[in-house]
Design a protein around this nucleic acid. Structure first.
Lengths: 164, 164
DNA sequence: CCGGTTTTGGTGATATTATAACATCACCCT
DNA sequence: AGGGTGATGTTATAATATCACCAAAACCGG
């Protein structure tokens, strides 16, 4: 599986490479924009990149604390807020949790999240057509969308078979 | 404006009628399914129907307490959970808040929520085409959607003009 | 390099949102 | 009446998120 296939998160893949590429890409993006990927921020991103499951802010915080960073909530929230602002991490509203973006920098990408209720992996699907429908529906009634969150709960391909 | 127009929430309308119809419809639905629209539950729904803004559970709780119901969080959460289960109320993930459904009972409706960042009104738009795109996108990678949340932030027609 | 400014990070306290666990009550059915 | 069920109340606590304040580090114009 190519590293940029949609929903790679649901398929077996070379995760070390997957994470390393995302991290490298994150560094490029920050370098380009002048944003500072400081140690806490970078570490927070690494932690999120370890898994395709979404992590709560306090889980990230615990990990950061283990690594010698502060152990108060703002430490995690500030790092996460920064990463979300840079588009390197997404917040999954449904779970009050965060997941690293697998293909950051994608030209204003409007992600659609698929959340497996069985294995808890979160994948980003190509959301262009969904966002287009959304824009159209909103446009018809004169609503101007600034940003949209699309999150679907269900079963990923692997868990469908397991459960069935 | 007809009571069932999409996104009526953004347009001036006879809200007393709007709320009364929704409440009547809720009673029908509960009668049909045997669900019990008890006093707290009914009151919680009435409270949510007073406005098209989303309300937090604790706001609803305060109102319920004023009306002589219990003043502990479970009182509100249980009533709200019931209403959500019956499809009479929707939870807006983005806001950790709740809004009454303006057209309950609609044939397994898969709503798309439009949240105005200026006036905070939440409207439900017809989401068929959005859900279809979503199903298609998920289907392509073998993901089986159980339910989806689509929430868009932006400006409603009225606030677009005001702000502009 | 200096000094002012901004950004970042640490910490304690607190706010907000949500649930667990258990007791009680009301109703229905027999 | 007895007993089951579902609804409600209450205490306590868990989980998530933010505020306020300070200190240190990075940046920037000279």
């Amino acid at each position: 599986m190519h590293a940029h296939d949609p929903a790679q998160a649901f398929a077996p893949h070379d995760h070390a490479t997957c994470a390393a590429e995302a991290l490298a890409r994150a560094e490029e993006i920050c370098a380009e924009t002048g944003a500072r990927l400081t140690p806490v921020r970078r570490r927070a991103l690494e932690i999120l990149l370890e898994t395709h499951k979404a992590m709560g802010a306090y889980d990230v915080l615990d990990r950061l604390a283990e690594d010698g960073f502060g152990h108060q909530p703002p430490v995690a929230y500030r790092a996460l807020d920064f990463l979300v602002d840079q588009g390197l991490v997404h917040r999954i509203q449904r779970l009050n949790a965060f997941t690293a973006c697998t293909h950051p920098g994608g030209h204003k990408h409007a992600p659609v999240f698929l959340i497996c209720e069985h294995c808890h992996v979160v994948a980003e699907a190509p959301g262009r057509s969904v966002q287009d429908s959304l824009e159209r529906a909103a446009g018809e009634i004169g609503f101007a969308i600034e940003r949209a969150h699309v999150e679907a709960l269900g079963l990923c391909p692997a868990c469908r078979e397991t459960d069935a």
